[in-house]
Each structure stands twice: as structure tokens, then as C-alpha cells.
């Protein structure tokens, strides 16, 4: 009897305490892949995203597709942001999409940086959610992330 009461009480207490939960906080994984070392841009974006209310996990640079996807799984993020300025995006981004398939996940990927117009469509074809070439207003990617569906619920487990 006491045990049941306790559990019930516990549940109710939690539920109340969590009423003001921040379930809509977006969690973003930001990364730089391959040898591309120009990281001021991605660091600035991390700050912009923080200021927009996102929780930003930054992996650092020289990441492989396997590392990026492993980190995205562990952090259970809403979106993966790849910053690329080295022209290697047609290599690293498709690899990341493939690795996601291999790991049986499907987290939206956005790509920003030096992307020739012709590559934008190619990237979308391999499953990239959106591309933000150099010069795009940072608010556009912020708005885009805000509109993404929230993945973090039991049902999707």
C-alpha cells in the first residue's frame, strides 16, 4: 500500500515540477569535417545559435562522418550543422548521410559555407535538409532550425 502511494506521489510530484519544462529547446550539433580549419565562422554561428536559445554541442574540427553521427546519437540532437569552406563538402556530407543510414537514424542535416550554387541541389538530393551558402543571413538558419520538428519524445524511440 505504502509503496503504491509512494510511486503515485512521486509521479504527481514530478509532473508538477516539470510543468514549466523547456521541451522546445532545440539541440544542435555543430561540426567541421575533414581538414577544413577555418573555424571562426562556425564558432560565431555557435554563439548566434546560443543567443537564439538553442543548445549547441560543438564537436571541434577534423571530424569524420562516423564521429559526427556517433556524437549526434549520444547527444540526441534535433539537427546536425556542418560548416564547410574547403570544397570537400561533396565528399564529407554524403558520407555523413550514409553513416546515418547505417546507424539507422535520420537526423536533419544542414550545411553552410562555400557551396557553389550547382552543389546545392546535389546536396539536397543526398538528403540534406537545407543549404546556407556564405553570405546567408544567420537568422535564416535560426528560423529554419526553430521550425524543425522536435525529435525528443518516447514515441520516436
Amino acid at each position: 500500500m505504502y509503496g503504491v502511494m509512494f510511486l503515485a506521489l512521486l509521479s504527481s510530484l514530478k509532473a508538477i515540477a516539470y510543468k514549466e519544462a523547456q521541451m522546445d529547446t532545440k539541440k544542435v550539433l555543430m561540426t567541421k569535417m575533414g581538414l577544413d580549419g577555418h573555424d571562426f565562422g562556425v564558432k560565431i554561428l555557435c554563439q548566434m545559435y546560443r543567443n537564439a536559445g538553442f543548445e549547441v554541442v560543438y564537436t571541434g574540427q577534423r571530424q569524420t562522418a562516423e564521429m559526427v553521427v556517433a556524437a549526434a546519437i549520444e547527444e540526441d540532437v534535433d539537427v546536425i550543422g556542418i560548416s564547410t569552406l574547403s570544397g570537400a563538402h561533396m565528399h564529407s556530407v554524403p558520407l555523413t548521410m550514409e553513416e546515418q543510414k547505417k546507424q539507422n537514424i535520420d537526423i536533419p542535416v544542414i550545411v553552410g559555407g562555400t557551396i557553389p550554387p550547382a552543389d546545392v541541389e546535389k546536396l539536397k538530393k543526398v538528403g540534406v535538409a537545407e543549404v546556407f551558402p556564405t553570405g546567408t543571413d544567420a537568422n535564416m538558419s535560426i528560423e529554419f532550425i526553430k521550425k524543425l520538428p522536435n525529435r525528443k519524445s518516447l514515441k520516436r524511440g
Partner: peptide, 13 residues
């Protein structure tokens, strides 16, 4: 903002 930068993974990559 309610946002945060979680940078500890860099050291643990």
C-alpha cells in the same frame, strides 16, 4: 537567451 554552448566534447573527441 536560454541557449547554451556545450563545448566539452571537443576535449573528449
Amino acid at each position: 537567451s536560454g541557449g547554451a554552448i556545450l563545448g566539452d566534447r571537443i576535449r573528449m573527441q
